[in-house]
Amino acid sequence: MEMIEQLVARTDPAYQRWLGEATDDVVTAAGAVVYRRESLPERNTTYGVGEWLAGYLMIGQEGDRGFFLRCDGGGPVFWADLGGLGEADLEIAAPAFEAWRSSGFALPPDPVPDMPLTADVYVDRIPLDGVALLMRARKLLGADWPVGELRSMLAVQPFLAARSAHPYALRRELESVPELRHHLFYSSDAGLEAVWAKC
């Protein structure tokens, strides 16, 4: 609790005033929850915010999205997928807490409207001798495929690589791994769709 209080003391003054007045979590019409002071420790601990987003406080949530303030006295309200990896995954939800509050805690639009928030991800079209490429996919997806089985996995493509993954977050990661852009797909009602929309 003490660490959370230290973070709160370094947030936007408008947020601190709101927190002093809030007697319960606020649930918006769109289904977001903005946490009162007593909810902050449990929510930030549950999602390990201090580990993957040091210097930030998770102040609310909507489904798989968290809302954050940087603890430097001001600045925007950010949002990120709760499976995000760090600051690079943050998007601006509002220019400041007071603006977000005035909007009724309006939600930002879905980050990639043409993709689901979660979907099963598949690997396909890797050449049969592409074990090194499959190893890179293994690392990117955080999979624990046995190394000894990689060749046999290449022979049965497409194969399920990750359940309930986040295609839009994965697409951002593919910015730095161009060799995998043509090999990752997510399931949709229309079949398998490329995660990298530009391919």
Rank of each mutant, 00 (worst) to 15 (best):
G31H: 10
G31F: 09
G31Q: 09
G31M: 08
G31I: 07
A32W: 02
V33N: 11
Y35E: 09
Y35H: 12
R36M: 12
R36L: 12
E38L: 15
S39I: 12
L40F: 12
E42F: 13
R43V: 09
N44T: 10
N44R: 14
T45W: 14
Y47S: 07
Y47G: 06
V49P: 00
V49A: 03
G50V: 08
E51V: 07
L53V: 02
I59L: 03
G60E: 00
Q61M: 04
Q61W: 02
Q61D: 00
Q61Y: 04
G63D: 08
G66W: 01
G66T: 03
F67G: 00
F68L: 08
F68D: 03
L69F: 08
D72E: 15
G74N: 13
G75Y: 13
P76W: 09
V77M: 10
V77Q: 07
V77E: 06
D81T: 13
L82G: 09
G83W: 11
G83R: 15
E87T: 14
E87Y: 13
E87G: 15
A88M: 15
D89E: 14
D89T: 12
D89W: 13
I92Q: 15
F97T: 11
E98V: 14
E98W: 12
E98Q: 14
A99N: 13
W100Y: 11
R101Q: 11
R101L: 11
R101S: 10
S102A: 14
G104R: 02
G104M: 04
G104A: 06
F105W: 04
L107K: 00
P111K: 04
P113L: 01
M115F: 00
M115Q: 02
M115E: 03
A119C: 02
A119P: 01
D120L: 00
D120T: 01
V121I: 01
Y122S: 01
Y122I: 02
D124C: 05
D124S: 08
D124E: 06
I126F: 05
D129P: 11
D129G: 13
G130M: 10
V131Q: 10
V131M: 11
A132M: 14
L133I: 11
L134N: 05
R138Y: 10
R138T: 07
K139Q: 15
L140G: 04
L140H: 05
G142N: 08
A143W: 12
D144I: 09
W145R: 05
W145P: 04
P146I: 07
V147N: 12
V147W: 13
G148E: 07
E149Q: 15
E149P: 13
L150S: 07
L150N: 08
L150G: 05
R151L: 14
S152R: 10
S152Y: 10
L154D: 10
A155H: 12
Q157K: 08
F159D: 05
F159Q: 05
L160E: 06
L160G: 04
A161M: 03
A161D: 04
S164P: 01
A165R: 02
A165F: 04
H166W: 04
H166V: 04
H166C: 05
A169V: 05
L170I: 06
